[in-house]
Amino acid sequence: MLTLAIPATASTPAIAADWAAGLLTMSGDSYPENSFELFQPVIDWVDAYLGDSDRPLTLSLSLLYLNTSSIRAMMDILDLLQGAHDAGRRVRVEWLYDPDNERVAELAAEFREDYSFPFDILARA
């Protein structure tokens, strides 16, 4: 049972992974100088979680800005979820955004269009 808790910095999001709850959350901006260093543990966590049991996984995102390499890493994570979904696993993404910034919702929709698992884009109350 692995727990991941990466605190936010000025250029990286807060990342928390709860194995027991099957919940991975990321919130904030993401423009690290080395996105591999930041996201590889997250990708490893998702890989391990999906490989370990058949429990559902929710990816909860409150991300505002992502630089190019973070977008790439995010796609790698979403690809893992798609693979699990194709194999019959229950996975879902919820992307929360501030209704004052509709463009975040549009960007989340750009990510969503390649995937067939449940992917909700929700305005934060």
């Binding site: 800005y65 190019t68 977008i71 790439r72 796609m75 975040v104 549009e106 960007l107 750009e110 390649d114």
Partner: peptide, 15 residues
């Protein structure tokens, strides 16, 4: 994938 990453990235830049 690269084209898509560029498209999303460009939109982030404009945001």
């Amino acid at each position: 994938q690269i084209e898509k990453i560029m498209r999303i990235s460009d939109r982030y830049q404009s945001m």
